[in-house]
Design a protein around this nucleic acid. Structure first.
Length: 565
RNA sequence: GCGCCCGUAGCUCAGGCGGAUAGAGCAACUGCCUUCUAAGCAGUGGGUCACAGGUUCAAGUCCUGUCGGGCGCGCCA
């Protein structure tokens, strides 16, 4: 697949090289310059659609000033048979190029032909990618970090698909290990407190204190009875966990479904233990001489593989650590299931875990440094009424994902959590998210879409429906507003690839905002339903391209694109 | 103490590879609806890019140091 933008840039490269060649033949340049130069889009559109820094890059080897080199090149440039209609030089020695009308027409015809697929890229080459996100602890409700992680992970997965990767969305359920034991203990104490009054033990400080634990214990007691008291502590805890854990997990699934997140796989940590994969891993690591025993525990020689210090894999009590299970889990992703790349979205407080995880995978020959990408998501500061909001006014507890989705529209949450780079701290304004106004960026984009739909609808009603236009008609779109709008439409594929390469779906959200702005400006400046039938048709054609792209990008994020508002 | 991330307008943030006059939105002020959605557009004001050095034709961007903020350094996950 080749894109018009790439084609245009390739034309420039060729034209500049040919011009340099001519300058040598004419004796103006002493030698043919070899240095690399770049074609870029100037920040200021007054400097053309593309610029080249060849004159600056070649100043040294040609022993001439950048400006005189630029002048020479500009004189020798031949832009026949290219998308460009003119070139000039400016500033320190930039060559600036201006696209001709055929290019703009070609972009719109391309969008029309590809429809919702416009902007797709084969950048990923069908690479198999696993995106693991949220993976909240099933012992309690999901929090605000999970809200950001959910929106980020789901949209990143969507962007990667759009950029030509084969993506699987995954949730890792930590249903084994210490935190489940703690969950069991907490449930047990709350259960006994229901029946034994003052004789029941107090809840230890490091146990789960939340009211959700009490509620689960009571729900069990209501559905069953006090008969667990007769059982051994272990049997009682087992019964309580067997009851409560599936309840919690299905609650998470419900909430995430409301959040429009559908996973391809829910992967249970317990499977790794039950299937013997953790044991196999430990055997393999032992055979590779990656482990040793000390103080009754099995240690991994992390310090020999990029880690700061060695790490325990199996505790003295014989129970494997989370780290051991996690290595087995990632080995399963990269080796057993043969994903080319595993992307994990973690809270930034886990950053100490990244290097040792990658190091361990490297030591297993799985090239962890390359194939495991960890996105360290910074925490969210919820703001309400200009102040940091920690507690839900309704429940009095920390704000959960469920609370959030009851308070604000899913569209707003999914969009606004993807407005910032993942690895930077962000503020989330609850008041803004519920506002149905221009200040709310998601409404701004939806309004642009609805507006485009409305224009299409109105003109169809007055007997001027959308029709196919030819390049000559589309070449009538020459105002600055039309040109800028089309130029931004042309940038979608590159933006999709950049978002995928940088693991940053926020680029697409910002692209939508910018596209909306340019459309609103166009709308204010250019009347679609005008006297000139051809111009009117061409403008309507442009409206439909904008509508199509906004629709495909909002839908990509699973945000609704209303036809009227 | 060691390690990671961050510091850009009053506020929230853009500025992948060093490039031309550092950009948006919000907030403040001023205009624009007899015609396609005013949930919009146009305009005004607002900056020692934390600070100090260095690298070069060119530094918000790269390097070093300082200050300020966040986080991590468990037989927790």
């Amino acid at each position: 697949m080749s894109y018009l933008v790439d084609a245009a840039q390739a034309q420039l490269r060729a034209a500049v090289s040919t011009a340099a060649q001519k300058a040598v033949e004419a004796g103006v340049f002493p030698t043919l310059p070899q240095g690399e130069f770049r074609i870029e889009v100037p920040q200021n559109r007054g400097f053309g659609d593309f610029s080249a820094n060849a004159a600056m890059a070649w100043a040294k080897e040609l022993h001439q000033s950048p400006r005189s080199i630029a002048q020479t090149l500009a004189e020798k440039l031949d832009l026949c048979d290219t998308y460009f209609e003119k070139a000039d030089f400016a500033g320190a020695g930039f060559l600036n190029f201006y696209l001709g009308a055929e290019y703009y027409a070609a972009i719109l015809l391309d969008i029309r032909a590809k429809g919702e697929d416009y902007g797709r890229s084969d950048w990923g080459g069908g690479r198999k990618v696993n995106v693991e996100f949220v993976s909240a602890n099933p012992t309690g409700p999901m929090h605000m970090g999970n809200a950001r992680g959910g929106a980020l992970g789901d949209c990143l997965a969507a962007v990667l698909e759009r950029a030509g990767c084969k993506v699987s969305r995954e949730f890792y359920v930590n249903d084994a290990g210490n935190q489940i034991a703690k969950f069991a203990l907490s449930l047990d104490v709350r259960y006994r407190q229901l029946f034994e009054g003052d004789n029941a033990p107090a809840l230890p400080e490091d146990a789960y204190q939340g009211t959700d634990i009490t509620a689960l214990a009571k729900a069990y007691a209501d559905e069953h009875d006090s008969s667990l008291l007769a059982l051994s502590e272990e049997a009682r805890r087992q019964a309580l966990v067997a009851y409560a854990l599936p309840k919690n997990i299905s609650a998470m699934q419900n909430t995430l479904t409301k959040y429009r997140i559908i996973y391809d796989r829910w992967f249970f940590e317990s499977e790794l233990h039950n299937s013997g994969q953790v044991k196999d891993l430990l055997t393999q690591m032992d055979e590779l001489d990656l482990t040793y025993e000390r103080d009754g525990a099995v240690w991994y020689k992390a310090s020999e593989h990029g880690g700061e210090k060695d790490e325990v894999l199996v505790r003295a009590n014989g129970v494997p650590t989370y780290f051991a299970a996690d290595i087995a889990y990632h080995r399963d992703k990269l080796l057993t299931r043969a994903f080319d790349e595993a992307i994990d979205i973690w809270g930034a407080d886990h950053h100490g875990h990244v290097a040792r995880m990658q190091g361990a995978l490297d030591a297993l020959g799985l090239d962890g440094a390359k194939r495991l990408k960890v996105i360290l998501m910074q925490l969210v500061r919820l703001m309400s009424g200009g102040e940091v909001a920690r507690m839900s006014k309704r429940t009095g507890n920390a704000i959960t994902l469920t609370d959030l989705l009851e308070d604000i529209p899913v569209d707003a949450a999914r969009f606004m959590f993807n407005l910032r780079e993942p690895e930077t701290q962000m503020e989330f304004d609850l008041d803004l998210a519920v506002q149905q106004s221009s200040q709310n960026p998601v409404y701004y984009c939806q309004y642009a879409h609805a507006r485009a739909c409305s224009v299409l609808r109105k003109l169809a009603e007055t007997g001027k429906p959308l029709r196919q236009c030819n390049a000559d008609e589309l070449a009538l779109l020459t105002t600055p507003e039309e040109r800028e709008l089309i130029a931004h439409l042309a940038a979608l594929t590159g933006e999709t690839e950049a978002a995928a390469r940088l693991y940053d779906p926020a680029k697409i959200a910002r692209y939508c905002i910018e596209l909306s702005t340019l459309y609103h400006k166009f709308y204010a400046a250019c009347r679609v339903n005008c006297e000139d039938e051809k111009l009117s048709a061409a403008r309507l054609f442009l409206c439909d391209c904008v509508r199509s792209v906004l629709h495909s990008q909002l839908t990509l994020f699973k945000i609704t694109a209303p036809e009227e508002m």
